[in-house]
Amino acid sequence: MAAISSFLSLSLSLPSNSKPKPTPLHYFRYSSLPNFLTSNSPPTLQSPHTTRFTIRATAASGSANQVKTKNERVQRVHSIEEFDEALRSAKNKLVVVEYAGMKNDESSQIYPFMVELSRTCNDVDFLLVVSDESEKTKELCEREKIEKLPHFSFYKSMEKIHEEEGIGPDQLVGDVLYYGDSHSAVVQLHSREDVEKLIDDHKADDKLVVLDVGLKHCGPCVKVYPTVIKLSRQMSDTVVFARMNGDENDSCMQFLRDMDVVEVPTFLFIRDGQIRGRYVGSGKGELIGEILRYQGVRVTY
């Protein structure tokens, strides 16, 4: 990895006012499951040739207790025992849990979107807990410390990995893609050795490698990820997209330190085994512009 180390000081000279503010790496060291997604901006590509990445609900508005669809994949649980068994049965799959209320308007609005999303994400399990259904569901919500509805919790291997309150459809889609991605064209990297192998594999094919470096609970990282997925499918002939979460393990965090990554998301641009530059931020248009620039397309800002 000598080639990587020799390019640590490279950065891109975008105008300062064009860079969205990234999240400092040190901010996450002592935080636990924070709620970062506060933007209402939908995760869309800034291009007339792409489509808006939004799930549209087809079910009529109504409480979570009333919405029923023929192919519904949302499992409703009624007790702590059912909840724990659902998490065990999911094993290492992503489990998305909505805690809703029968008379809660926000629950009524978001639930149809979760139903629609469940139909397209077969590798994700979706659970519904209606907090005011019974004493047993109240006990479950008390155990999970649910204070505000609707509330979404994300689990893998029975471990809570993320949670959100009061989110809209676009944030829900972004979270599911970010935490449950197992089928996209984005290569998932889990160690420094994975990075080295990816770089070696593409030294000779002239493909640009775009490495998305982030953290598990980083709102800007989640926000930009649907764009990364879309680009990975559209540019598969010339660009390889990969992702690493620095706080997944010690090897990943050491890689971030070695690469002098101090804010996330950071995108490293690698060609011929060498880091050619980086972009720090979650601006979709700026990211696309930098990728095009490293492919030899003239870009002006």
Results as ranks from 00 to 15, higher is better:
T238M: 07
Y111E: 07
Q46I: 09
T266A: 11
S282M: 03
N122Q: 13
V222E: 10
V96Y: 10
L177T: 04
D194S: 02
R52I: 10
V195Q: 12
M114N: 03
E72P: 00
N104S: 08
Q295D: 13
C218F: 01
M158F: 04
T120W: 01
Q254N: 11
F154Q: 10
E135G: 04
K160W: 08
M102H: 08
G166I: 02
V210D: 05
E135N: 06
L198T: 13
K70Y: 03
P226K: 02
S18Q: 01
K93D: 15
S13Q: 11
F269L: 09
Y225T: 06
G174N: 14
R257E: 08
A59G: 07
P20S: 13
L128K: 14
S232L: 04
G283N: 04
D200N: 11
Q254E: 14
E263W: 03
V187G: 02
R119T: 12
D205Q: 05
S13F: 08
E82R: 10
E72T: 05
D132M: 00
G174K: 12
F83D: 01
F255K: 01
S6K: 13
G273W: 01
E72G: 09
S131E: 01
V186L: 06
H151R: 10
T54G: 03
G283E: 04
L117M: 15
V210Q: 04
D258L: 07
Q66H: 11
L172D: 03
F154I: 06
L211K: 10
Y301C: 01
K68S: 11
L94N: 05
I4W: 07
T51I: 06
M235V: 01
I199Q: 09
Y179K: 07
L215V: 09
R298S: 15
G214W: 05
Y301H: 02
I161C: 00
Y179C: 02
K91E: 12
P112S: 07
V264W: 02
D237S: 14
D205A: 08
V176W: 14
R243P: 00
S282V: 03
G296Q: 09
E163I: 00
A100L: 00
V297W: 10
M235S: 04
G246A: 13
L25Y: 12
P42A: 15
N40A: 12
E163T: 05
L149Y: 13
Y155T: 05
E165A: 03
Y178L: 02
R233S: 06
R257M: 05
S9I: 05
S282D: 15
M235W: 12
V173L: 15
A242K: 12
E248Q: 09
D181G: 03
P20N: 14
N71G: 13
E98G: 04
Y178F: 14
R73K: 12
M253G: 01
E286N: 14
N245T: 09
L87F: 06
E85C: 07
C121E: 15
M114K: 04
D84V: 12
Y111W: 01
F255S: 10
L208G: 08
N71E: 09
E139R: 13
G168K: 02
M1F: 14
V224H: 08
